[in-house]
């Protein structure tokens, strides 16, 4: 099979308007992935499926990932030469940068006909609040149907052109998206014999004055 870099080149030549980014993977098996832009994702998916050299006819796994906003502290060091002739000093400068959050969908593609894979493609939403639509790939691979519904349920990504986009696991009246990192669980604390950490904090909140009874 071609390497992902070769596939990247071919796709870039074929779809010049699309923005394609190669996402490296530092883990030992180095399953790198290709970040597509949402506007061209459907065309590229069809191309990947039908291209005779690739024939990625089997979409195995669809995963939603939540990347909340993250504050990154970068330290830059600069050497400053003392104009008075003293030894050069190193100055550390800390800059804070806010990395914008996004929701991501990862598709693992394999070929059952040619028995190779995986080719991993990813899609990202603009942010985590209002730009959360992505094109559905269910018309290309039907195996995405339930998995995209699950991601809609648990992460809140809205897939356009999905044939039946409803909540999969939680009930319809449910409003939150529990797999997001900032989800707060409903408070149904129950007594535990050895509370610690966050359970202890919850216990204190539920029983504000246990000391009065103990005495």
């Amino acid at each position: 099979m071609e390497t992902l870099a070769q596939i990247h080149e071919r796709l870039a030549a074929r779809f010049p308007a699309a923005t394609l980014t190669l996402v490296p993977n530092p883990a030992p098996p180095a399953q790198a992935s290709l970040l597509l832009d949402a506007a061209h994702a459907r065309e590229i998916a069809v191309f990947l499926r039908d291209d005779p050299a690739l024939r990625l006819d089997y979409c195995s796994n669809v995963t939603g990932v939540d990347w909340p906003e993250k504050e990154i502290v970068e330290t830059t060091r600069s050497v400053q030469i003392d104009p008075a002739g003293g030894p050069p000093r190193t100055i550390e400068q800390k800059t804070k940068r806010l990395q914008p959050g996004c929701l991501e969908v990862v598709y693992h593609l394999y070929s059952m006909a040619l028995k190779h894979g995986p080719v991993i493609i990813r899609l990202r939403t603009g942010n985590r609040s209002d730009q959360i639509t992505l094109p559905s790939l269910t018309p290309v691979w039907r195996s995405c149907e339930f998995q995209e519904r699950e991601i809609f349920d648990l992460f809140g990504i809205v897939f356009t052109d999905h044939p039946d986009l409803r909540r999969l696991l939680m009930w319809d009246e449910f409003t939150a998206h529990p797999m997001r990192k900032d989800y707060v669980e409903p408070d149904d604390y129950e007594w535990e014999p050895t509370p610690h950490d966050d359970v202890l904090a919850k216990a204190k909140a539920h029983y504000p004055a246990p000391a009065a009874k103990a005495e």
Partner: peptide, 22 residues
């Protein structure tokens, strides 16, 4: 089915959170 949890979350006549005596 509520928006975030069951409503009510328990039957208070049947079950109460146990009282902690420390």
């Amino acid at each position: 089915f509520g928006e975030r949890d069951l409503e009510p979350t328990s039957n208070p006549k049947l079950w109460q959170p146990p009282v902690i005596v420390r």
